[in-house]
Amino acid sequence: MESRITKKFKELKSNNQKALITYITCGDPDLDTTIDLVLAMEKAGADIIELGIPYSDPLADGPTIQRASQRALNSGTNIDSIFEMLSKLRKNTDIPIAFLLYYNSIFAYGIEEFLNKFSGSVDGLIIPDLPLEERKELQELLENHPIDLIPLVAPTSEDRIKEIVKATDGFIYCISSLGVTGKREKFNLDLKYFINKIKNHTDTPTAIGFGISNEKNVKTLKDFADGLIVGSTIVEKIEESIQTNNNVIKNVYEFVNRLKEAF
């Protein structure tokens, strides 16, 4: 079954456009705000939404997303309340949504139960601690659902790339550089070469993530891949808005809008 993500990339490609993928953590600072933020980001031009499921031990994330995770857990966010939030959200939007989550969140819930629950409302799973070697069980169970397992490729993957991208749908998450999520001072010039190496092995669309934080980054990188992922900086906008009692929705809308215009 073709997922909303796959359809979206086809649509963008036929219009000669790139995907803007934006990340927020579910329940940061609460789930009602998450609904409003998703709709605002869609309105501002986001093509695909990445929703983080808050986790106690997010070992692939930098301090910004760690704090978002903590705020979300403090507000009582869990898989069941996220499901309720999504059911409400889906009445208002058909935008493709991918979860960014740690494998224990699915595993502890029960893999099949989790997939049955979210089949139809969620379109992709990005699992930073589930490498090629461990993904078989989940991948087999996913065959019955319109949900893509989005593989991550790192600058250190080298000759693993071919196997990682084999038989994948949705998009390939290309990690821009070493390290956890968060801003980067600069990007390596080899990035273009790295993405091309991935493209040599697959027709699945590619998207670059980790460290993309402003319009300038977008302009530099947009031609390298089929999409760009922005996370920590949006989460920072949310954090700043909470701390200064400013309008979260408005700030995030304006930032995503500026990113979109840079494409």
Partner: peptide
């Protein structure tokens, strides 16, 4: 169960 960056 680690990030892809560490696999190599």
């Amino acid at each position: 169960f680690v990030p892809e960056t560490l696999m190599s």
